[in-house]
Simulated assay, not measured.
Amino acid sequence: MAYCTKADLIDRYGERLLIELTDRGAIATGAIDDDVVDRAIAEADALIDGYCAGRYVLPFATVPVQIGPLSRQIAIYTLHVYEPNEKITADYKEAIRQLQQIASGTLKLNAEGVASSTTDAGGARVTDRERPMTEQSLKGWI
């Protein structure tokens, strides 16, 4: 399941920008190339999944509201062949920063199936064996 759609990108960035970024053929068609958009969205979603996989069970049962904007910001940045404008670059860097916070656990998603961040290998161990030094065994020393 994609975290954003072509319609989401059009709503946020406008059809004209998407035409400029995706109409890459030898002869311009003046239309959005769906394959280019789908590939950018898939790359953005794979990046998001990579950051979220350590903390959350994927795929999400319901997509958290924070994920859609991150997907749009990364996808539009990915669509740029040349250097994007400052706003798109800043949004991309902010999206990556938020993904790093999700991965580290400082930013929590409202998602079902949160994966356990600990394993049974750590923590305190308690043994119930007898103590070798007791009042009786140390008689004469105390």
Rank of each mutant, 00 (worst) to 15 (best):
N110S: 15
V81H: 11
Q73T: 05
E94F: 01
N110F: 13
K108Q: 12
N85R: 11
Q101Y: 04
L99E: 03
Q100K: 14
S71T: 09
L79A: 02
N110V: 09
D91C: 00
S71P: 03
T89Q: 14
A111D: 07
A103M: 13
E94Y: 05
I96D: 04
L70H: 03
G105N: 12
H80W: 04
G68D: 07
L70S: 04
P84G: 05
L79N: 07
L109H: 05
K93T: 15
T89S: 14
Q73Y: 01
Y92V: 04
V81W: 15
E86P: 02
S116W: 08
E94I: 05
T106F: 00
H80N: 10
Y77G: 04
R72G: 03
S71L: 02
A90F: 09
I88C: 06
I74V: 09
I67A: 03
Y92K: 09
V81C: 07
A90E: 14
L70A: 04
E94D: 11
L107E: 08
P84S: 02
G105M: 08
L99F: 05
V114D: 04
R72Q: 15
E112I: 09
R72K: 13
N110G: 11
L107R: 12
D91T: 01
Q101E: 14
R97C: 00
K93A: 14
V81L: 13
A95W: 00
S104I: 00
D91P: 07
G105E: 03
D91H: 00
E112M: 11
I74T: 03
T106S: 12
D91I: 00
Q100E: 13
R72N: 10
